[in-house]
Simulated assay, not measured.
Amino acid sequence: MYKRGKTTIFACKADPRFSYCLYVPEDLDTAGQPDLVVAVHGTARMQFQYREAFAEFGRYNNAVVLAPLFPVGVRGDDDADGYKYILEGDIRYDQVLLSMVAEVEVMLDCRFPPFLMFGFSGGGHFTHRFLILHPDKLKAVSIGAPGSVTLLDSSRDWWVGIRNLRELFGRDLDVEALRRVKVHLAVGAADVETWEIQHQVGSKRYMEGANDAGRTRIERNNSLKTSLEQHGITVMQDIVPGVAHSMHGVLPYTMRFFRGIVQPRERLAAQ
Rank of each mutant, 00 (worst) to 15 (best):
F130L: 01
L138E: 01
H184V: 10
E167H: 11
E208I: 15
A186N: 11
P113I: 15
N211M: 11
S142P: 08
D172P: 04
E196S: 13
H184Q: 11
D212P: 05
R171F: 06
G119Q: 02
F120K: 09
D136L: 05
R180Q: 15
G147I: 03
A186R: 10
T194W: 07
I143V: 04
V187G: 05
H199N: 15
E193K: 14
V160A: 00
F130K: 00
I143S: 01
R156I: 10
M117R: 02
E208Q: 14
S154W: 08
L133P: 00
Y206T: 05
L178P: 01
A145G: 09
R171W: 09
K139Q: 14
S148I: 12
H125C: 00
D157P: 03
E196F: 15
A190P: 11
L168M: 06
R166K: 14
R166Y: 15
R180G: 13
P135M: 09
D172I: 10
D157W: 02
V149E: 02
M117D: 05
K137G: 02
D172M: 08
L131S: 01
I132W: 03
E208T: 15
L178F: 03
D136S: 10
I143T: 01
G123I: 08
L152V: 04
F120T: 06
W158T: 01
S121R: 06
H184P: 04
Y206G: 04
P146Q: 11
C110V: 15
V141F: 06
A213S: 11
E193S: 14
S142R: 09
G170A: 01
L168W: 03
G147R: 00
G119M: 04
T194P: 02
E193T: 15
M107Q: 14
P114N: 07
G147F: 01
V101G: 05
H128C: 02
G202A: 07
G170W: 02
G161Y: 03
E103L: 07
R179I: 00
L108W: 08
H125D: 00
L133N: 03
S155A: 11
S154H: 12
S148E: 13
T127F: 05
N164H: 03
L138R: 01
A145W: 07
D212W: 09
S154K: 15
E208C: 10
